[in-house]
Computed example of a mutant assay.
Amino acid sequence: MLPEGMIPRSCRGIWFLKPIRIIATFPALGNICSGFSLSDRFCSAAPLRDLRSLALLSILHSMPSSSPSDSTPPLSVHLPVLMREVLRAINPQPGQIIVDGTAGGGGHSREILKRIGETGTLIGLDRDPMMLKLAAQKVQGENVHLVQASYALLPQVLEDLGIAQVDGILLDLGLSSDQLADRRRGFGFAAEGPLDLRFDTTAGEPAWQLLERLNEEELATIFMEFGEERFATQIAARIVETRKRKPILTAQDLTTVVTAEVSSKRSARSDRQPATRVFQALRIAANEELGQLEVFLKSHLQDFLKTGGRGAIISFHSLEDRLVKNAFRDKHRFRLLTPKPVIPAAVEQRANPRSRSAKLRAVERL
C-alpha cells in the first residue's frame, strides 16, 4: 500500500489542490493482450504491461474549480454521442451503481449521475489523466469515484471500492475531440508535438518509437490488421525509406509521408484524410486497445454485472464492433437488447460529424 498523498509515476500530471488519496495498489494484471494474435509481437512495451505499481486514484468531489499554482483547466469540447440511446440502453435508476468505463469529458457520466441520484454510485474510469480532469468538472459528489485506470482493470477498481457487482457498464471507445485538440500528443494530423498517441504518456511506448523500432514487415502488419489499410505494404516501405534520412517524430511528419505515398492511389471522391487508417493502427498498437477490449468482453462484463444488469458499448470501427458483436451473441450469458447496432440519427450526424461511424450495442446479463 502506498502512503497517503504519494503520487505514483503512472499518475503524475493530474491536477489537484488537496493531497490525493490513494485507494490501493494491485499486482500485475499480466499480459492484457493475451489471445490477440499481434500482441506479443508489437506490444512488448505497451502501457498495461507497466501497471504493476499503478495506484488507483480517487479524483473526487473535493476537486476545486481553480488552484493557486495551476490555471483552471479548459472545459471539454467533446460532444458525447448517442446520448438518448445510451440512457435508454443502460436505463439508470435511483440508487444503482453504474460504471462509465471510458469517462472521457464526462458527458455520459453527468446524465447517468442525474438519474441514479445521491443514493446511487458512479464510477468513472479513464487512462488519460487529462480526460479525468475534464470529467471532474462535470461530475462530483460523495457518490462519485473517478479513477485513472483502464476498464480492463475493473476487477481491481471494484475490489478497492468494496463493490462486488454493478447495475450497468458503459464503454465509449471513440477518441474524444479534446484528445484530438491536444497538440502535444499527436492525435491530430497537423499536431506539431511528438507523435505519441498514448492515452497515458507515463506508460508504454510512444508511436514514434514504434515507427523507429519495427521493421517494414511488422509495420505493414500493424497497418493491415489494426487499420485495415489496403496500401499498408507501400506505406511501410515508404516509412522505412524515409527514416533512413530523417526520423518521423511528429504527426505532421507521418501525415506527410503517408500522403505522399497514397494520395495518387486513392479515389478522388474520398474525403478521408489519407493517413487516417495509419494513425488508427498506431494508436491501437500503442495503447493495446483491442487486447483490453477482449479481456473485458471475455470476463468482466459477465462477472461484474448483476443479473439483469446492462452493458452498452459504442464502437467506431469494424475491428472493435466485430469483437463486441461476437461477444454479445452468447445467449448463455446475455440477452441482446440491440438486434442491430444503433447508429446516430441524421440530425446528430449533422450536428456532430464525428458521430457518423458510431455503433451502439447493448445487452442484459442473464
Rank of each mutant, 00 (worst) to 15 (best):
Leu2Cys: 03
Leu2Gly: 00
Glu4Leu: 14
Glu4Trp: 08
Gly5Cys: 09
Pro8Tyr: 09
Arg9Met: 00
Trp15Met: 11
Lys18Leu: 13
Ile22Trp: 01
Phe26Met: 04
Ser34His: 04
Leu38His: 01
Arg41Tyr: 04
Ser44Thr: 05
Ala45Trp: 01
Ala45Arg: 14
Asp50His: 13
Leu51Gly: 00
Ser53Glu: 15
Ser53Tyr: 11
Ala55Gln: 11
His61Gly: 01
His61Asn: 14
Ser65Asn: 07
Ser66Glu: 13
Ser66Leu: 02
Ser69Trp: 09
Asp70Pro: 00
Leu75Asn: 07
His78Ser: 14
Arg84Glu: 14
Arg84Gly: 15
Leu87Ser: 05
Arg88Leu: 12
Arg88Ile: 01
Gly95Glu: 10
Gln96Cys: 11
Val99Gln: 10
Gly104Ala: 07
Gly107Val: 10
His108Thr: 06
His108Glu: 05
Ser109Leu: 05
Glu111Leu: 08
Gly117Trp: 08
Thr119Asp: 14
Leu122Gly: 08
Ile123Cys: 05
Leu125His: 04
Leu132Ile: 15
Ala135Arg: 01
His145Asn: 08
Leu161Met: 02
Ile163His: 04
Ala164Asn: 08
Ile169Glu: 04
Leu171Glu: 04
Asp178Val: 09
Thr201Ile: 14
Glu205Met: 14
Leu211Ile: 13
Leu211Ala: 05
Glu212Ala: 15
Glu212Leu: 05
Arg213His: 07
Glu216Lys: 02
Thr221Val: 14
Glu229Pro: 06
Ala236Asp: 06
Ala237Arg: 15
Arg238His: 11
Ile239Asn: 10
Val240His: 03
Lys244Ala: 12
Arg245Leu: 11
Lys246Ile: 02
Pro247Val: 02
Gln280Tyr: 03
Ile284His: 05
Glu289Pro: 01
Leu290Ile: 13
Leu293Trp: 01
Val295Leu: 04
Leu297Trp: 08
Ser299Asp: 14
His300Ile: 09
Gln302Lys: 12
Leu305Ser: 07
Leu305Ala: 07
Lys306Ser: 10
Ile314Lys: 03
Ser315Val: 01
Leu319Gln: 08
Arg329Ser: 15
Asp330Phe: 06
Phe334Arg: 05
Phe334Glu: 03
Leu337Arg: 10
Pro339Lys: 06
Pro339Gln: 08
Val342Leu: 12
Ile343Met: 14
Ile343Lys: 15
Leu360Glu: 06
Val363Gln: 06
Val363Arg: 02
Arg365Cys: 13
Arg365Pro: 00
